[in-house]
Design a protein around this nucleic acid. Structure first.
Length: 465
RNA sequence: GCGCCCUUCGUCUAUCGGUUAGGACGCUAGGUUUUCAUCCUGGAAAGAGGGGUUCGAUUCCCCUAGGGCGUACCA
C-alpha cells in the first residue's frame, strides 16, 4: 500500500482563520498518524486578491501552531498552463465543450427553473453542437456532465452521499480568458500532487460530487474524501469575528499555548472516548477519520481557557519559560533580564497554577518583574492602614534576625501572628500588600524566599513608612 | 426555490439495540488554604417532535420542525 498524502489548500486572504487552522490540523494529524505526507498548496489563482504578505501570514500561522508541512508549498497559479492542458484533453475526449451562451441566456434559464421549482441546472444549447468552433466569439469550456444516473461519493466522515446527475451542472472549466476555474484547478493539482486523502470543510461536500465528475472524465483515481463539519459561533450560526473567527495569530496574541490550541481544535469535532486533555503526541497516535463527528461544533472560549491552564500546569518549567519568552517577543515587549529569568525559573511552580494564559502568567509575576517601591492598588491599600503598618513594623524588626529559609519564615510569622493575637491571614494580607502592592499573589512565604531578605525588608519598610 | 448535510446536559462529547445515558468545560454547594489559584467531595443539567421496525430504541427507517452548506466565468 502506497503512502498517504494529505494537503491543506488555503486561499491567501490575509490570515489563517480558525476554521482553516483546524482543517490544517486534521490533515496534519492524519498524515502524521499514517506516516504519510502533509502538503501545502496556496490557492493564489485570484490575482486581484493575492499578496505575498497574505501567504506569509498563513505560513506564520501554521508554524506557530506547530504544523510542519512536507516538500515545497505549491502555487496553484504556477500550474495554470497544466490546467488548460487538461481542459484541452477533456475537449478532445468529448467530456467538455465550448459554450458561447451569454450571461442573459444563463440567467433566464435559472430564473425560469426557480420559478418552476425545478432542480434542473443550466443546460447549454452548445452542449451537443457540432460546429461550435466556427463561432468567432468568446467562449468558456464546460464539463459535459452526465445527465442521467447518479454520482455517489463515499465520504469517510459523511458516509455515502449521492446526487441525481440532473442536479449537477455543466460547470465551467476554463473561463473566457482561458484561465482555469477553482473546480478544475483543484482536481488537477490534487491529482498531480498525488493527494490520496482530501480532508476539508463540509462546505465543499457538493463540490466533491462535481469534482468527482472531472476525475471520472479524466479517468483518474478519485481520492478519499473526508468532509469535516464547520465550526459555528456560540449562537449556532456562522462563526463571526466577534465569536472567535479570528486569525490564528489572535490566539497567539491572547497568550494561548500552541499545544493547548492543538488540543482544543482537535477536540472540536473529533473524539477519542472521554479524553479531553491530551498531548499532541497522543493526538497523533489516536487520530482517525472514523472518530470525526458529523455535526458542527461551536467555539467555546471557556473550554479553550481551561485547557490552556491545564497545559500550562503540565508543561515543563524550562519549556514554559521558553514559551513566555516567545510570547514576549511576539508582542514586542521588553525582553527578560537574566535576573527575571532566574526568578521565573524559581517561582514557576507557584506561578503556573495561577494562570490560564501567558499574559496572566506574566501578570502574576508582577512582584519580581518590577522594582520597588510598589504603589499599592486600591485593594492592597486597604490592608495597609495605620494599624497594619504598625504591625508590619514590628514584624520587620523580628525578621531581621531570621535565617532566610522557608521553614524558618513560616514558623517565625506564625509565631508572630500568635503573639499579636491575630489570625495568620491578618498578617499575611498586609504583608502581601507590602510585598507586591496587590491583594492577590502567590504564597507570601514563597515570595519572601525568592525575593531574599534584603529586598523583602526593604519592601516592608517602603510600605510601613 | 432546488440539492445536500446536521440535531444527546448551556457548550464540547461518549454510547456503535438492552446503561441509574458516562466524561469534560461552565454553573452551583461544601472541604483544604495566608489571598488568588490549584486540589478534593457533592449537586442541578440532555436523547427536537411525531410515526414506524423490534421482545426492547438515544441507537435502524420515514415524516415534520429547526439549523448549516451549496446553488458564480470566487475560492
Amino acid at each position: 500500500m502506497s503512502q498517504i498524502i494529505t494537503r491543506f489548500a488555503p486561499s491567501p486572504t490575509g490570515y489563517l482563520h480558525i476554521g482553516g487552522a483546524r482543517t490544517a490540523l486534521f490533515n496534519w494529524l492524519y498524515a502524521r498518524n499514517q506516516g504519510g505526507k502533509f502538503l501545502l498548496r496556496i490557492e493564489d489563482t485570484d490575482r486581484a486578491r493575492f499578496t505575498p504578505e497574505a501567504t506569509d501570514a498563513i505560513y506564520a500561522g501554521l508554524r506557530w501552531l506547530g504544523l510542519d508541512w512536507d516538500d515545497e508549498p505549491v502555487s496553484q497559479f504556477e500550474n495554470i498552463a497544466r490546467h488548460a492542458e487538461v481542459a484541452a484533453q477533456m475537449l478532445e475526449n468529448g467530456h467538455a465543450y465550448k459554450c458561447y451562451a451569454t450571461k442573459e441566456e444563463i440567467d433566464a434559464f435559472r430564473t425560469k427553473a426557480r420559478a418552476e421549482k425545478s432542480a434542473a441546472t443550466f443546460k447549454s444549447p452548445w452542449r451537443d453542437a457540432v460546429n461550435a468552433d466556427s463561432k468567432n466569439t468568446p467562449f468558456v469550456v464546460r464539463l459535459k456532465a452526465p445527465d442521467q444516473g447518479k454520482t455517489v461519493i463515499e465520504d469517510r466522515v459523511q458516509g455515502q452521499v449521492s446526487w441525481k446527475n440532473e442536479t449537477l451542472d455543466d460547470l465551467v472549466l476554463l473561463r473566457s480568458d482561458g484561465t482555469p476555474t477553482y473546480m478544475l484547478a483543484v482536481v488537477v493539482d490534487d491529482h498531480d500532487m498525488g493527494v490520496t486523502h482530501v480532508i476539508r470543510g463540509d462546505d465543499h461536500l457538493t463540490n466533491a460530487a462535481r469534482q468527482t465528475l472531472i476525475y471520472k472524465a479524466m479517468g483518474w483515481d478519485i481520492p478519499v474524501f473526508a468532509h469535516i463539519p464547520l465550526i459555528h459561533g456560540p449562537d449556532g450560526a456562522k462563526l463571526s469575528k466577534r465569536h472567535g473567527a479570528l486569525g490564528i495569530e489572535a490566539y497567539r496574541d491572547m497568550g494561548y499555548l500552541p499545544e493547548a490550541m492543538r488540543n482544543y481544535l482537535a477536540r472540536l469535532g473529533w473524539s477519542h472516548g472521554d479524553d479531553d486533555f491530551f498531548t499532541t503526541t497522543q493526538a497523533i497516535e489516536w487520530f482517525s477519520l472514523e472518530n470525526i463527528g458529523k455535526s458542527p461544533a461551536r467555539f467555546d472560549f471557556k473550554k479553550l481557557e481551561n485547557l490552556s491552564g491545564q497545559h500550562i500546569r503540565a508543561m515543563d518549567n524550562a519549556e514554559l519559560l521558553y514559551q513566555i519568552e516567545s510570547f514576549i517577543n511576539s508582542q514586542n515587549l521588553t525582553e527578560l533580564t537574566a535576573y527575571q529569568k532566574t526568578m521565573f525559573s524559581k517561582g514557576m511552580n507557584s506561578l503556573k497554577e495561577r494562570a490560564k494564559t501567558l499574559p496572566e502568567l506574566v501578570e502574576i509575576a508582577h512582584y519580581f518583574l518590577h522594582e520597588r517601591p510598589f504603589e499599592p492598588d486600591q485593594k492592597a491599600a486597604k490592608f495597609l492602614d495605620t494599624v497594619s503598618r504598625g504591625m508590619l513594623n514590628r514584624l520587620t524588626s523580628r525578621l531581621q534576625n531570621v535565617s532566610w529559609i522557608l521553614e524558618n519564615l513560616e514558623t517565625e510569622i506564625r509565631a508572630f501572628a500568635e503573639a499579636e493575637e491575630l489570625k495568620l491571614g491578618k498578617v499575611a494580607q498586609p504583608l502581601r500588600a507590602a510585598l507586591t502592592g496587590r491583594s492577590v499573589s502567590p504564597s507570601v512565604f514563597d515570595m519572601m524566599v525568592m525575593l531574599g531578605k534584603d529586598e523583602t525588608i526593604a519592601r516592608l519598610q517602603d510600605a510601613s513608612r
